[in-house]
Design a protein around this nucleic acid. Sequence first.
DNA 1: ATTGTTAACGCCAATATTTGCAATAACTGG
DNA 2: CCAGTTATTGCAAATATTGGCGTTAACAAT
Lengths: 160, 160
Amino acid sequence: MTSYEQLLQVLRDQGHRLTPQRLIVLRVVAEGSQHMGVDEVFRKSQAAYPYMDLATVYRTLRLFKQVGLVTEVAIGDRLHYELTDPGERHHHMVCRGCHGAFNLSPHYLEEFNSTLVNEFGFVPDLDHFAITGVCVNCRSEGGEPSDPIPKEDLTHEDHS
Amino acid sequence: MTSYEQLLQVLRDQGHRLTPQRLIVLRVVAEGSQHMGVDEVFRKSQAAYPYMDLATVYRTLRLFKQVGLVTEVAIGDRLHYELTDPGERHHHMVCRGCHGAFNLSPHYLEEFNSTLVNEFGFVPDLDHFAITGVCVNCRSEGGEPSDPIPKEDLTHEDHS
DNA sequence: ATTGTTAACGCCAATATTTGCAATAACTGG
DNA sequence: CCAGTTATTGCAAATATTGGCGTTAACAAT
């Protein structure tokens, strides 16, 4: 019923078992307002279920990523995870200045996608696409700002 | 004189010191026909200079990547490195079926680049760009082939 | 509800990668 | 060429990530 149930169905459909650990990790990631690092997911999961093992978190996140439940984003040099929103699928532009993550509509990749397919027969993985660079704010300030722009201000921008 | 000298100049210009370790790593990467993993770079460097430390290799590769001397490519789930060729700059399409790395002319990214800059003021890092997907061969064979296509046959394709 | 099959877990060890720090050596200016 | 400054190294410890394996428990079939 809830979209939460739908997510679980994705796992079932692919023959994966619904374990309490997976439910917890899923909830943790789902409730996280922002993308979280592995350690953060682990700590929150452990809070809900003390026996939670770090290896399980790694394995679970890898699985979730495989089936498309979560999206992996490289922030700085660490991987972060966030729930994949099937309705509002988006890509990321990650600023290496402020580490802000801007959303990017899939629309901007469509042409690129068809080009690769048509010219080379290469089908790119575009479920999620992340590209690093420097955002407007960091460009104008010049150099890496010591005072990063709050993620909240940037992350939910979706320029369609 | 040699392009090798030019590479060293890049380091000097940015105020980095020219240590024997760095020269060795640079040579190893330069002489490697294909992109190499950290361990491979380490082993070859160690062969040339027995005191070479693994941490130094990591640090050196990170530095080289920063200054653009080498290019980092994700093959499978490990990072590989290759010398950045300033003349024949190219990007990569990495097949997750056969792990082959196809070259991609920068031309195909120009439009994408200007779009991001114009629309969002976001300047993407396109010195090197790598995208994973499935290549023609692996698509036709269906599923992950157990007999990977030799890298030699694919890697130096440059579809301009 | 009971049982069988086997994926997944928890724990531990292995591997990969990063970091702290004292000693060294690359560059600078004299 | 010599001495001073400080980035870089090597080593070792810390941290991050992955893998092996016996046990547990999810799911399917009875």
